[in-house]
Design a protein around this nucleic acid. Sequence first.
DNA 1: CGTCAAAACCGAATTAAATTCTGAAACAAA
DNA 2: TTTGTTTCAGAATTTAATTCGGTTTTGACG
Lengths: 155, 155
Amino acid sequence: MEDYCLDELDYAILKILQTDSRITYDDLGKKLHRSKTPIFERVKRLERLGYIDSYVTLINYTKLRECLMSYISVKLTDHSIEALQDFATNACALPEVMECAHLTGGTDFLLKVVTKNMEHYNEFLFRKLGKLPNIANLNSSIVIGQNKSSPVIPF
Amino acid sequence: MEDYCLDELDYAILKILQTDSRITYDDLGKKLHRSKTPIFERVKRLERLGYIDSYVTLINYTKLRECLMSYISVKLTDHSIEALQDFATNACALPEVMECAHLTGGTDFLLKVVTKNMEHYNEFLFRKLGKLPNIANLNSSIVIGQNKSSPVIPF
DNA sequence: CGTCAAAACCGAATTAAATTCTGAAACAAA
DNA sequence: TTTGTTTCAGAATTTAATTCGGTTTTGACG
């Protein structure tokens, strides 16, 4: 892997692409006072070097179908590296789990979970997540309203 | 706004677009055994009707620069609708806040926050978030490892 | 300073994709 | 069946992505 230190143009490109992955190279060039060629080459380099992970589409799920979102904090009984890793692997494999983070402090993991409704949520909690080994304690909080959810990282 | 009930083809399109917003209509059509014309028209309709929110780029922020992620649970002193709404508005306006959810249970809000490092985090906590009105209590958990973070919603 | 090599850039040329257009097939209501 | 509507495929066109050739900029080195 090359070593390459991003310059201001690279940062500017990433900043714009973060909120619009379908902008044309021409328009991107106009915003950044360059022709499309260098912009194109830089985007390809950012992809190649792994600064760009993926291009995704955000869909309006609440409009699409009923949707229940919740956060679940998880405590484990065993805190060995293997046990922690195992839990993470198992939890991440569940499609309802949109986020899984290993935390400092009282709880070991925080999960963000999406299901269709309370019935599916119960099903998920007791039949899937609850059946994973090594769980001491699960604590759910249901999302009443999602005020912000943005993949855009501040610069 | 038209009323329109999505069919299986629409769902299939959304499912694929969720993980790849730059696939060509031609390729999308091949996956779904259609020519690109109907696929194109359906995507435009999904955009028009608001099922598709946006096309975004996910960047590898940890590769880009140092990065500290944390979850902060917030309790307020005043639980009137206005106070709740005010807090949400103020918190969402902070660029460090990537997610802001209003929860059931003991805590009122859960925030996902990104800063460059502990110094910036303290700055954020005491100078920005902590200065918002009506906060009873803030409880931070630092993310040791992010095992999954996906905008892909299960179908 | 000049010289050289590498990298970045621009504009034109080409290739590929998006978008539009035309008409055929499927479907539903009368 | 007839009629109107929707969906679709394939061709035609427009627009964008990608490649190419050559110029400018930049930075190392004598």
